[in-house]
Design a protein around this nucleic acid. Structure first.
Lengths: 265, 265
DNA sequence: CTCCTTGCATACGTCAGATTTATTGCTATA
DNA sequence: TATAGCAATAAATCTGACGTATGCAAGGAG
C-alpha cells in the first residue's frame, strides 16, 4: 500500500540453509515481540536491510503477521539501539552501522550471528586488551581479602583443569576468573564489559570458531595476576594481565587471518 | 485500582527547585513517548523508584495522562536497557542497578543528571584511561597519512587556543582530538566510547563540575601523541597518552574527593 | 502435617479501528 | 527565483476488547 514498498523476501524465514548459521536463538513461544524484534534486528545487523532502506509499520505488520502495536514496540526498541530512525511522513529508516549502539548486548548477539562476526570479535578483543590490565591494577588496590583469595583459588582450579585436560571446565573457570577480576576492580562498566566478553566467548564456542587450549604460560600468568592482586601490587598485576591479553590477541589474530573473507564458516 | 499501588508523588514534575539540577533536557513538544521515557528513566536512575518496586501499566497511563500504548512502548524500551523487567500477572519491576546497560548513552545521561553523577564520571574516566592509550597505539599502526596530519594540526590548534586562553575553543578541540585518535584506531567500539566521553565532558560543563584549564605539559603530551602516531611509533603514542590520562584522572580525582557527599552541586 | 494438584483472579500481551498531528513535496503567486 | 500556502501521507496517539500466562490460595491425597 505504501508506495513501491520494498522487496521483503530477504526477511522471510529462509535462513539460507547454509546449515548452522541461524538456528534462531529465540524460542518459538517467546512472544511475538521477541520474535519480531529478533527477526528485524538480525536482518538489519546482517546487512540484509541496507542503511537508508525505509520500512513501513503497516507493511511490517502484514509481513510479520502481527498487529501494528507489536511492530511499533519493536521499532521503538530498535530506535533506542540506534538501528533505525522513524520519522513522520517518511517511515522508518535503517541507520548506518556507525550509529548503532555496539555496546548493547542484543546488538552484539545479532552481529555475532552475522557475517560481521569477525569484526565484532576483533573489536571486543581489542577493547578487552585495553581494559583488563587496567582492571587488574585497580583490583590490586580495591579487592577485598576474600575476593583476592577467591582469585587465587580460581587460578589454582584453572591449573588443575588445564592439567586434567578438562576443556569445558577450563573455559568456565577462565570466564569466571576474568569476571572476578573485573568485579574486584570496583568499576561497574568493567563488569558490564565482561558480560559482553562472555557473550563472545560462549558465542565463539557456539560458532566453533576457536577451541581454547590452555598452555603452561597462560596458567602461570593467571596465577601471577591473582597473587599480585592479593599483595596489592598493581604494576605486577597489570603486567601479568597484559601477557594474558597478548596471548588472547594472538589467538584471535590467527582466527581473523585464517578466515580470509567474512561469510565463511 | 491495581492493589495498593505505589506512592507516585515522587514522579511528579517537582524537580525539587534546587535550581539548575534538572531543567528537563527533553523539550516539551518532543512527543509523549520521549517525555514519559525521560520521566521514568530519570526516576529510576535517580533511585526515586527503588529496585524491586512494581509499576502497573494502567496506573502509569493515568498518572502520566497518556494512553497505554505510549506507556507500553516506553516500558519496552526501558526493558531493553535493563532498567525494568515486566512479567505477566506481576507487573513491571525495577531492576537493580547492576542489571542496567551502563553503556547506553541514554542511561548515561540519566545517571549524569542524578546523584550518581560522580560514580558515573569516575567509571567512565577509568574506562577512558584504559582505552585511550591502547587506541593511540593502534592508531599509530592504522592511521592514514591524512588522519595523522589532521591530528598534528589539531594539536597545534590546541596549543594556540591554550596560549590564547580561549577555554571554550580549547574544550572543543580537546574533544575533537581524542575523537580523531579513537577514529584512527579503526575500532568501532572505541569510537562509540568517545561519544560517551563527550557526553560526560559536555555534561561536566553543563553541571559546572570542572573548569578545564590547559597546562604546558598537557599541551606537549598531545603534540607528542600526534607526532608519534604520524611516525607509526605505537609505544611512544601509548606512553604520551598515558600521561594525558594520568592528568585527566588526577583532575577527576580532585573532583570526587572534594565533593564528599553526592547531591551537592 | 506436608506436599501436590487444581481453580481462579489478575495484569500483561495482542489485536483492530478511528482520529490527530507533524512533515514533506508540490504549486501558485509575488 | 524565492516564498508562502495547500494537500497528501505515514506516524502518533487513543480506545475498547479479548486472549493468555501465571502467582496464589484452597482443597485433597499421602
Amino acid at each position: 500500500m505504501q508506495g513501491g514498498s520494498w522487496n521483503w523476501y530477504v526477511l522471510s524465514v529462509v535462513t539460507p540453509s547454509t546449515g548452522e548459521a541461524a538456528p534462531s536463538l529465540v524460542a518459538a513461544q517467546a512472544g511475538l515481540h521477541a520474535r519480531v524484534l529478533d527477526e528485524l534486528g538480525t536482518a538489519i545487523c546482517s546487512g540484509q536491510l541496507a542503511p537508508g532502506s525505509v520500512l513501513y509499520i503497516d507493511d511490517l505488520a502484514d509481513q510479520c503477521a502481527v498487529s501494528r502495536s507489536v511492530v511499533r514496540e519493536v521499532l521503538r526498541v530498535l530506535a533506542s539501539m540506534g538501528l533505525v530512525d522513524t520519522r513522520r511522513r517518511v517511515g522508518t529508516q535503517i541507520r548506518p552501522a556507525s550509529d548503532w549502539n555496539v555496546f548493547d548486548p542484543q546488538v552484539i548477539r545479532w552481529r555475532l550471528a552475522s557475517a560481521d562476526r569477525i569484526v565484532q570479535l576483533r573489536s571486543l578483543t581489542e577493547l578487552r586488551t585495553a581494559v583488563e590490565p587496567q582492571a587488574a591494577a585497580l583490583a590490586a588496590e580495591r579487592a577485598t581479602p576474600d575476593e583476592a583469595s577467591d582469585l587465587v583459588g580460581l587460578a589454582a582450579k584453572m591449573w588443575a583443569a588445564g592439567k586434567a585436560g578438562n576443556e569445558a571446565e577450563f573455559l568456565r573457570l577462565d570466564i569466571e576468573f576474568h569476571r572476578q577480576v573485573l568485579l574486584s576492580s570496583g568499576n561497574e562498566m568493567f563488569v558490564k564489559l565482561q558480560e559482553l566478553v562472555a557473550e563472545v566467548l560462549t558465542g565463539r564456542h557456539h560458532y566453533a570458531l576457536m577451541p581454547h587450549y590452555p598452555d603452561e604460560h597462560a596458567l602461570q600468568h593467571h596465577a601471577d595476576v591473582a597473587q599480585a592482586i592479593q599483595r596489592h601490587d598493581g604494576e605486577r598485576a597489570r603486567d601479568a594481565m597484559v601477557h594474558i591479553m597478548e596471548q588472547a590477541m594472538n589467538e584471535m589474530r590467527s582466527i581473523w587471518e585464517r578466515t580470509g573473507v567474512p561469510g565463511r564458516d
